[in-house]
Design a protein around this nucleic acid. Structure first.
Lengths: 65, 65
DNA sequence: ATGTAATGTTAAGTACCCTTTACATCAAAA
DNA sequence: TTTTGATGTAAAGGGTACTTAACATTACAT
């Protein structure tokens, strides 16, 4: 599973720390998601979609395992 | 977080065991999701959406904590 | 050259997703 | 009444999402 978090974050001109604050998660969580260390929970995926004003399906691509 | 899994499953006329097989999870997982014991992972949410031919946002409602 | 902001790594701990196994309940069919 | 299918509960274990903390790297400003 891949995601566009870094891309979307940079388009929105926010730092990892700012995004983490907005989503109420740790900065480490944002780093790990952007670097593909693990997948977001459904709840966090939803908060990301809301923050970036898009859909979960747009942020995440589920193709490969 | 709520979900429409049971509702969608019944509309599709499949048992919990059949749905579990189709999604490659245990029957226990389907039961727990339907009964609200915990939330699906993002990957499972995606498989559910694909199976029911809809979107993650349609199956899950994120309103309340 | 030094300081600062942004990003990154590693590690240890907690909570939750999902599994397997075993058993209980209920309705409908035999 | 007994059997069967569908649904449910409980518990123990593995893997993963997320946390906090401490420290490293890079780039840019002073």
């Amino acid at each position: 599973m891949k995601n566009k978090i870094q891309e979307l974050r940079q388009e929105h001109h926010v730092t990892q720390a700012e995004l983490a604050d907005q989503l109420q998660v740790s900065r480490q969580t944002i780093i790990s998601l952007e670097r593909g260390k693990y997948n977001a929970s459904l709840m966090l995926a939803h908060r990301l979609a809301t923050y970036f004003n898009t859909t979960i399906e747009d942020i995440f691509t589920f193709e490969e395992e």
